[in-house]
Amino acid sequence: MKIRRKKRYRSTDVLFQYWSAFCALVIILVMAGILAELAVNSRLSLREFGFGFLVSRDWNPVTRQFGALSSIYGTLVSTAIAMLIAVPLSLVIALFLVELAPPALSKPVGFAIELLAAIPSIIFGMWGLFVLAPVMAEHVQPALKTAFGFLPLFQGPPTGIGMLTAGVILSLMILPFISAVMRDVFAMVPPVVKESAHGLGATTWEVTRKVTIRYGAQGLLGASFLGLGRAIGETMAVTFVIGNDHRISASLFAPANSIASTLANEFSEASEPLYLSALIELGLVLFIITLLIQAAARLWLRRLEKGAGVK
């Protein structure tokens, strides 16, 4: 009788292990599946346009000519704007949270920043379209035009809908992610190291600039990478304010398109197979870009864990 009971245990245990292993396997299968499915469904477009797809400025459903360049351009520029704003801001916010704020302040502020991260993208989109865009059109963009209008960047009608607004909204969205990771990086610097620098007579900024940032340099870069990855794939917030126009313009005021916003705006209109396939190929391009960035960020952060300095 005892032996029989033991056998039953063993088989349920094995079942448990296999079942949970299978669930873990699902993750790998889905990831591979995404790549496979996107590749398969874009083969029409791949065959039709080949590599030229990536560098063609065309996007004409009527003549059935499709090219990813305008979408890629929009993705890259809006992301660049977002990073330019968000990375330095995140750095000083993380500095604030770790070095400057009294504990009574740093917890609620940290919490508020985390809440910002939880707000869904479509809410940012709504706010961006109905609140930020008018502010940009009436105040920010005219001011920029007056001050820097000689640059082609700030020419053209300040409608509030376009690349610049998209970049600003994106920066707000990635700010909490980047600053959260940066905060963790700063917190990991051993207090004795910071005290050693202070002990030599350095001001807080001098300690941060030369010691803390160096100590956590790899982590700070990894944080930026993560933010970058998120910005590139962001859909709804960008779709609302970028203007949905397949053009490549030097002006940041002009409407544009990102890969994600193209997909969101045009998928329901794509009636014929080539159009659909071109859109899916866009999705494939986006997937591969984010894959590369994610992999680079993770590998970088893994190098950080084999850290340097004081243990």
Binding site: M31, G33, I34, L38, L263, T290, Q294, R298
Partner: peptide, 18 residues
Amino acid sequence: NVMMGVPSIVIGLFAYGV
């Protein structure tokens, strides 16, 4: 980890295809 970084729109495309 990588999957968590995939844009949700791409996941939508996957579900569409499959």
